[in-house]
């Protein structure tokens, strides 16, 4: 074992140097950061997924161990864990799995906000991959190296070049887990809403709504965030609030097919046929994926015919 290790080091350098260009550098890396309080779970064979996820969740105050996570994310026949299930398992613990921008700066920014970053690495080659999950817990600008909880190493320092090589080969996949109402400073509305919406699809309406409300605090002019809030209000049978949110969504993005379709649908439900029809008439080109849903709403409106509008319609 000792022989392997010692032999490995120069050999790895030798092999990797073949594709090395100019040394990478970080723009404005800021101060050194290390989240020393992040716990460590050493992985057992092939179980870096459960170990890394437990590390990140435990850092967020979720009491969970790799052994508890394994039945949820480990695939014996693949001897590993897939990215989709890492994300899905994070949601189970009411944490929002937020994908990071694929830059080392985004990883460092997250660390400065106190969030450990779970990332996928390819420790092998593109054609002969060896996938590995690790958790970044620190960055040292002086040495230009990341500090990882990785495999059986509690504090592995990895130089920027090596870090980028292994991360690049895994398409720079990384995410943080946060409370559903704590939007990180560097989050984008697209990434936040993409992480929030699956809670809605899976019927976890309360969590989805927390995330949408937090999005609106941060980005009050996001039409999609208003649409998200409308969907959760609708699911909670609070239709007036859903309608109000959809009005806002249409106002902010008049070209949004989904906002107008959903508003038409809510209006129709309370008997406002004229207003519903007006929304549908304002819909421009419908993307193929939405054609069925919009067509259904049109049929619903048409089937009501020319009945008189209910009172109190817009």
């Amino acid at each position: 074992m000792l022989f392997e290790r010692r032999a490995l080091w120069p050999a790895v350098l030798f092999l990797l140097s073949a594709c090395a260009g100019a040394p990478p550098r970080i723009d404005a890396p800021g101060d050194a950061v290390e989240l020393s309080a992040v716990p460590f779970f050493a992985q057992t064979e092939h179980h870096c997924g459960p170990a890394a996820l437990a590390t990140m969740l435990a850092a967020q105050g979720v009491a969970v161990t790799p052994d508890q996570l394994s039945p949820l994310i480990y695939i014996p026949g693949r001897e590993g864990t897939l990215q989709a299930e890492m994300i899905a398992a994070t949601r189970r613990y009411d944490r929002l799995p937020l994908r990071l921008e694929p830059t080392p700066e985004a990883v460092i920014a997250a660390l400065h906000e106190g969030q450990p970053v779970l990332l996928l690495q390819n420790l092998g080659f593109r054609r002969w991959p060896a996938w590995h999950y690790a958790v970044a817990v620190g960055y040292e600008p002086e040495a230009s190296s990341f500090i990882l909880r990785s495999g059986t190493e509690q504090r592995l320092t990895t130089g920027l070049r090596r870090f980028l090589q292994t991360w690049d080969r895994a398409d720079r996949w990384a995410f943080v887990s946060v409370e559903p109402d704590q939007v990180p400073a560097n989050a984008t509305p697209e990434a936040w809403l993409a992480a929030a919406a699956p809670f809605e699809s899976l019927g976890r309406i309360d969590v989805a709504e927390r995330a949408y409300k937090a999005a609106l605090d941060r980005w009050p002019s996001s039409s999609l965030a208003w649409q998200g809030l409308a969907n959760t209000r609708y699911a909670a049978n609070d239709k007036p609030a859903a309608e109000a949110a959809l009005q806002k969504a249409v106002e902010l993005d008049p070209a949004s097919v989904t906002a107008r379709n959903n508003l038409a649908s809510v209006l129709l439900e309370r008997g406002c046929v004229t207003a519903a029809r007006a929304q549908l008439e304002a819909v421009g080109r419908v993307p193929g994926a939405l054609a069925k849903a919009v067509e259904q709403t049109r049929r619903d409106v048409d089937s009501v015919g020319t009945r008189e509008d209910a009172s109190g319609c817009p």
């Binding site: 392997e4 992985q43 064979e45 870096c48 590993g80 002969w128 590995h132 059986t152």
Partner: peptide, 20 residues
């Protein structure tokens, strides 16, 4: 599922690289 990256860990890799 067959072709997706399945994160397994640093342990296996030492073996692979060593063989190479």
């Amino acid at each position: 599922i067959e072709s997706q990256p399945a994160g397994a860990g640093a342990l296996a890799v030492i073996g692979i690289v060593f063989v190479v």
